[in-house]
Design a protein around this nucleic acid. Structure first.
Length: 282
DNA sequence: AACCGGACCAACCGCCCGGTT
DNA sequence: TAACCGGGCGGTTGGTCCGGT
């Protein structure tokens, strides 16, 4: 059974908000608050709008603490660093940037920052992977995973202290490196290359992270859908572009070292584009 | 002045998750 | 336990603006 619509679509106004509507919504919320129920709010306030639309308008535009205007260099840096660590978790980023909304950050990233960083990235030299050295580039501290294990929980707990605790972010300026150098050793002996981890526990101390589609090594022959896709992987500083065959080789070689146990799995997020792939080993 | 294409951004859509019944 | 419901989120769309030709 399909989900019931949140409102009667035929009887709600869509499109840009008029100043009158803004005024009605603001007045109502100032007087009565949201009441914890956005769905009924427009009816009570006398607005012909969907509750979700009211919520969005309030959160993204009308709230008194919204900061309008250009992003600062510091905000740029925070966004880039967090994107490198948690991916497109705009709401978490917004929590780190007072006055900025997730929509603002998302738009800013998509229209400006991404292009800016991609421009820098295209200037950097790319090398084809050589897997033995790939293993050597892993820090020795990965053996226990503990040194960086606070990174993810810091982020998930909205703790700004993660900035600087991850060696990926030691550089103080916004650079390509801060964007694309990422690996995430976390509790549970997990390493993620790429980004956008999700964690099933709210305290960030998860022993299992799941995201994307699970693929076992024996499924590598079924990689047809990724044949023309490029994969950006990095451990340490310099991101490398991998072809499908590179990834397969990497997967198949990963069991030969002591930080990957048997029963390796790889997670490929099939929704991602060339700069967005993630592999989980556990 | 008119047209065009890209940039920008507000708003919508659909999905997921947690709470409630 | 399952269905329902609302809030929240990320992805996408479409309208507007603006600079170039």
């Amino acid at each position: 059974m399909g989900r019931a619509p949140c409102c009667d679509k035929a009887n709600v106004k869509k499109g840009p908000w008029s100043p009158e509507e803004d005024s009605i919504l603001m007045d109502y919320i100032h007087k009565y608050g949201t009441g914890g129920n956005w769905i009924s709010l427009p009816h009570k306030a006398g607005l012909k709008r969907c509750g979700k639309s009211c919520r969005l308008r309030w959160l993204n535009y009308l709230r008194p603490d919204i900061k309008h205007g250009d992003f600062t260099d510091e905000e740029d840096r925070v966004i880039c660093s967090m994107f490198a660590t948690i991916g497109s978790r705009w709401s978490i980023m917004a929590a780190q940037l007072p006055g900025r909304t997730d929509n603002d950050i998302k738009n800013y990233w998509n229209t400006k920052l991404k292009k800016k960083l991609m421009g820098l990235s295209s200037q950097s030299q790319r090398k084809l992977p050589t897997f033995p050295s790939y293993h050597q580039t892993l820090p020795t501290s990965l053996a226990g995973f503990e040194p960086f294990s606070s990174v993810q929980s810091d982020i998930l707990n909205n703790n700004t202290a993660f900035l600087g605790t991850n060696p990926c972010f030691n550089n103080t300026s916004t650079t390509t490196e801060s964007l694309v150098s990422y690996y995430y050793p976390v509790k549970g002996k997990l390493i993620m290359f790429g980004r956008e981890p999700s964690c099933s526990s709210s305290d960030g101390s998860c022993s299992q992270i799941s995201y994307g589609r699970e693929m076992k090594r024996e499924d590598m022959g079924n990689f047809q859908g990724f044949r023309d896709q490029k994969f950006m992987l990095s451990c340490g500083v310099t991101p490398l572009e991998y072809d499908l065959e590179d990834v397969k080789l990497l997967i198949n070689s990963s069991g030969d070292n002591n930080w990957c146990n048997n029963n390796n799995h790889i997670f490929i997020d099939e929704n991602k584009t060339q700069e967005e792939v993630m592999d989980y080993y556990y």
